[in-house]
Lab assay of single mutants.
Amino acid sequence: MTSCHIAEEHIQKVAIFGGTHGNELTGVFLVKHWLENGAEIQRTGLEVKPFITNPRAVKKCTRYIDCDLNRIFDLENLGKKMSEDLPYEVRRAQEINHLFGPKDSEDSYDIIFDLHNTTSNMGCTLILEDSRNNFLIQMFHYIKTSLAPLPCYVYLIEHPSLKYATTRSIAKYPVGIEVGPQPQGVLRADILDQMRKMIKHALDFIHHFNEGKEFPPCAIEVYKIIEKVDYPRDENGEIAAIIHPNLQDQDWKPLHPGDPMFLTLDGKTIPLGGDCTVYPVFVNEAAYYEKKEAFAKTTKLTLNAKSIRCCLH
C-alpha cells in the first residue's frame, strides 16, 4: 500500500463567511444568496454554514464600524470581559468565536472560507496562513488546477512579526479568498463568478477527501510576504508620492531593483532599492491607505505537500 500522510479526520463542519468587511460585496451577495438557497454549497455528509460576519458594517456598506474585524481574533480580544464599552467588532468577534470556535479547541469548525474583495488587480487569490499544512496545500492545488487556465495565486502570510489574527483563524483550516479588482461597494459579475467557482472547487475537494480519495504528493507556487511598504510621506505625515503608473495593476509581476515604484507630484520617480527582485501584491489597495500600506513585497517559492487521505471509520 502506498505510504501517505493521513489527515486527522474527515471534514464535518464548514463555514463560509461574507461581510467580514461590509463594503466587499461579492461575499456579502453570495452568502445572502446561499442563506436563501444553499443547494449549490451542500455536499453529502458535510455541514456547510453561510454566515454574515459583520452585519452592521454590511448594512452601512462600510469596511467596519469601530475597528477591523479581520485583525482582532487574538486571545487578548477574544478574552476581554464582555461589555457595551467594547468596540462593536470586538464584541462581534467574541460572538463569532462562540459560534464557530472556540479558537484553538477541538470544537472549532474544521474549515472557514472568508470571502473578500480587493481594489487591487490580484485576480483569484487564496490566502494561506501555514506553509506546513498538507491538507490546505492539497486543497489549493486542486482549486488552482480546477480553475486553469484562469490564474489563481496563493498568498502566504506566515511571518515572524506580522500577526494578522484573522476572522477565519478560529477554524482548524483557515482559508482566505480574495478576488479583484473590484471597487468597494460595487458588485461585478465576473468577480462574483470567479469567487463562486473557487468555493465550488473547494467544496468538491472536501467531498472527494471525505469519500476516501487519496491525493498524491503535489507542489504549489506561493508568494510569501516579506514586508509592507508605506507611501513616501512629508514631515507632516502626508502622502508625498503615489503608486507609479508602471507599478499600478502589476500585482504578482516581478519588481526589480531600480524599477519605478512611486511618483511625486513634481514628476520624480522613486525606484525600488535593494538588490532583490520582489513580487508586489495589494498594490494601491483602497482599504490600506489608513493602514499606511502602499503594497506588500513578496518572494516566490514552492511548497510541497505529502499525499493525504481521509481516515475512514
Rank of each mutant, 00 (worst) to 15 (best):
residue 8 E to H: 09
residue 16 I to H: 02
residue 16 I to A: 01
residue 16 I to G: 02
residue 17 F to P: 02
residue 19 G to M: 02
residue 20 T to G: 07
residue 31 V to D: 00
residue 35 L to F: 06
residue 40 E to I: 01
residue 44 T to C: 12
residue 44 T to S: 14
residue 46 L to Q: 02
residue 47 E to C: 06
residue 50 P to V: 09
residue 52 I to K: 01
residue 57 A to S: 11
residue 58 V to P: 05
residue 59 K to F: 12
residue 60 K to G: 14
residue 63 R to T: 08
residue 64 Y to E: 13
residue 64 Y to N: 10
residue 69 L to R: 08
residue 73 F to A: 09
residue 78 L to T: 12
residue 79 G to F: 14
residue 79 G to S: 09
residue 80 K to A: 14
residue 80 K to P: 09
residue 80 K to L: 08
residue 84 E to L: 14
residue 84 E to P: 07
residue 85 D to T: 11
residue 87 P to A: 15
residue 88 Y to T: 09
residue 88 Y to H: 12
residue 89 E to W: 04
residue 89 E to I: 04
residue 90 V to D: 13
residue 90 V to I: 13
residue 94 Q to W: 12
residue 96 I to H: 07
residue 99 L to V: 15
residue 101 G to V: 05
residue 103 K to D: 15
residue 104 D to F: 14
residue 112 I to D: 02
residue 114 D to P: 00
residue 114 D to V: 04
residue 120 S to K: 03
residue 126 L to T: 01
residue 128 L to R: 02
residue 134 N to Y: 15
residue 137 I to T: 03
residue 138 Q to H: 08
residue 138 Q to Y: 02
residue 140 F to Q: 02
residue 143 I to A: 00
residue 147 L to H: 04
residue 157 I to D: 14
residue 157 I to F: 10
residue 157 I to M: 15
residue 159 H to Q: 09
residue 162 L to F: 15
residue 167 T to L: 15
residue 169 S to H: 08
residue 169 S to C: 14
residue 171 A to W: 03
residue 172 K to D: 04
residue 178 E to P: 03
residue 182 Q to W: 01
residue 186 V to M: 11
residue 190 D to T: 09
residue 193 D to P: 03
residue 194 Q to S: 12
residue 196 R to V: 01
residue 201 H to M: 07
residue 202 A to E: 00
residue 204 D to N: 07
residue 207 H to T: 11
residue 208 H to P: 00
residue 208 H to F: 09
residue 215 F to C: 05
residue 217 P to F: 04
residue 218 C to R: 03
residue 223 Y to C: 04
residue 228 K to M: 15
residue 238 E to K: 11
residue 240 A to C: 08
residue 248 Q to L: 08
residue 250 Q to K: 12
residue 252 W to H: 08
residue 253 K to T: 09
residue 256 H to Y: 07
residue 256 H to R: 13
residue 259 D to S: 08
residue 264 T to G: 12
residue 273 G to P: 15
residue 289 Y to G: 15
residue 290 E to S: 08
residue 291 K to V: 07
residue 295 F to P: 01
residue 303 L to D: 00
residue 307 S to Y: 06
residue 308 I to L: 10
